[in-house]
Design a protein around this nucleic acid. Structure first.
Lengths: 333, 333
DNA sequence: CCTTTAAATGTAATCGATTACATTTATAGG
DNA sequence: CCTATAAATGTAATCGATTACATTTAAAGG
């Protein structure tokens, strides 16, 4: 593969000029530019990015760390990030933790090793210690999840409010026996949704039943299993709020198999509004997270960070939309 | 950030020795290794990958080009690639074409520019010309899709056979009015599934009805729309074979809205077996593609290519599994 | 204790671009 | 036509590691 010096030689100029033609053409005479471009074409020259990157000490790459690529919540955010990254001239490197928090540390090393210019974390379950040495030194943004008391810009939604909204919706429809199938409480997202649920109950003076609160892992299967468990006792809820659409799908399947009609016998709501929510039978009532937008925003903020700017806000809260469909039974009233 | 020369100085050795401690420790005395590691720890030294990569002319990165991250077919393959890549010490860079074939050329440039060591294409709609200059020179693997008459290793399934299998299943259940909603024929995958469908009909001496053959884009919406269109005439099919699960979901929704029962009035089958297929109501009959495995295999072959080995086969065909569930109506008989 | 050979370490070139600074060339003004 | 200034180009250092080759140190054998 031809290198810059070959081009320079063929064009009868120095490498400095070739470099300038590529990087700041306004500083080079037209005629020279033409000569250089001819040489480039003739040799089918492509600049070696490894060399360029070393020299300018940038990679033009960012790393997105997610726990599961096959979860539409994450893939949609990644798509948003990728789109915005393209606009900023950046590339996206994938980091899949498969739920293993320790892997994040390895990814942080990549930052230090100059393999990437910045990092977007889509989930954080990480030791405080690890945060200490990186917080200020490197461009990092957290999206969706967040960590209290840490100085990292965050893009998220108001999970407490959303959890409350869904629960209130059930309450307003006359439900008082409302179950909750959420995610692991290590994640702030899960805690907040649960808290929203509890707040709504407390405000409505409905007692909180620990039997009706379960922790899954956001998967279809965990929704299925936990719903079966919840519906097994003598006293069962008439409405179930699931922390993700996938868990709601699993729950609905479990209910169907146990002979319950949804929403007539048990109402169900999900969270996320993935593309399959509307197509389900019954169509799923859920909270639409603007995932693509969150991804874009995260990239936007990261770009500022990379360029040494200080983001206006530490925390960006994006608005959600409550999608009332069939699974909550609202249309029957 | 400390660099290697700092470590060398602190440890009282040369950079060559530091480098050796990191790359080929067996060539360095134990005592020296300890000194070096102490210095590394003291300085919190991290090697600059940009420099290393330039020197050894490798990036340790591969690029995966997919048309849509939010399509589970692709995200599952990517997850498979990512998993295997991790084992090989490689990183995955994302390339999202959003269906724009021209973008692929840009990604190929990245190969030439040494930004990545290899390329895995999850869909190919590309000019023959572009192929000419890259085929032999760079490590490239195609997964899922393929291109005839091109010398690139390919991982795929037997789409003709699978298309035939589903169609035959309908025929065996007594259907003779069978519709097909596939993808755009630019993709070999779509052509093959359609051909399988046609072959099955021809062999069963059933006339092919052009009205019952539609081309979508593998999305829920296109399945929905094309199904509405197909069911609009006076003469409508009693079974519909969709080229993807997503389109099948859309089709089922359309049928439900038009008052048809699935599978009693119209039987439906999908393709892919994404994780939502089993949870749908009715549960979707479909072909399970071993997507994760295909991704892994693709990475395996790419790794061979990168290391200058010649893969044993030019084309790897992975076995699929036919998942008979409810939407085809088989359980009713 | 000296020589031979192997093990350990050091020296310095190298990967391929970028860019500050120096130098040459062109343009304008008198 | 000469000088002052601006525009264009060239020279060479630099980014931070790796590694062939040279040199020093240690081990083995007599």
């Amino acid at each position: 593969m031809a290198k810059m010096s070959d081009v320079a030689e063929l064009a009868g100029v120095s490498t400095a000029t070739v470099s300038r033609v590529l990087r700041s053409p306004e500083a080079v005479k037209e005629a020279t530019q033409k000569k250089v471009y001819d040489a480039i074409r003739q040799l089918d020259y492509q600049p070696n990015m490894l060399a360029r990157n070393l020299r300018i000490n940038k990679t033009g790459t960012l790393l997105v760390v997610a726990p599961d690529l096959n979860n539409l919540v994450f893939s949609e955010m990644i798509a948003g990030i990728d789109e915005e990254a393209g606009k900023c001239g950046y590339q996206v490197l994938l980091g899949n933790t498969h739920g293993d928090a320790k892997k994040i540390e390895g990814y942080i090393d990549q930052l230090k090793q100059k393999q990437v210019d910045g990092l977007i974390l889509l989930s954080v379950e990480l030791d405080e210690k690890v945060w200490q040495d990186i917080t200020d030194h490197y461009p990092i943004v957290i999206a969706s999840d967040y960590v209290e008391a840490i100085q990292v810009p965050t893009i998220s939604i108001d999970n407490v409010a959303c959890g409350k909204q869904i629960t209130n919706h059930f309450i307003q429809m006359g439900h008082s026996k409302i179950g909750f199938i959420g995610g692991r409480l290590q994640a702030s997202v899960s805690r907040d949704r649960l808290n929203g649920y509890k707040q709504a109950l407390v405000e409505a003076k409905i007692a909180i039943q620990d039997l009706w609160i379960e922790q899954g892992d956001y998967s279809i299967l965990s929704g299925y299993n936990l719903c079966l468990k919840m519906m097994n006792g003598p006293n069962t809820p008439t409405a179930i709020f699931c922390g993700s659409d996938e868990m709601a799908f699993g729950a609905i399947k479990a209910l169907r198999e146990k002979g319950y009609r949804v929403p007539e016998d048990v109402a169900v709501a999900g969270f996320d509004d993935i593309k399959f929510a509307a197509v389900m039978n019954p169509a799923l009532t859920t909270i639409a997270q603007p995932l693509q937008k969150m991804g874009q925003k995260a990239m936007e903020v990261l770009y500022q960070l990379i360029n040494g700017q200080v983001p206006v806000q530490k925390q960006y809260i994006i608005e959600c939309e409550f999608k009332i469909r069939e699974s909550c039974g609202y249309h029957l009233k």
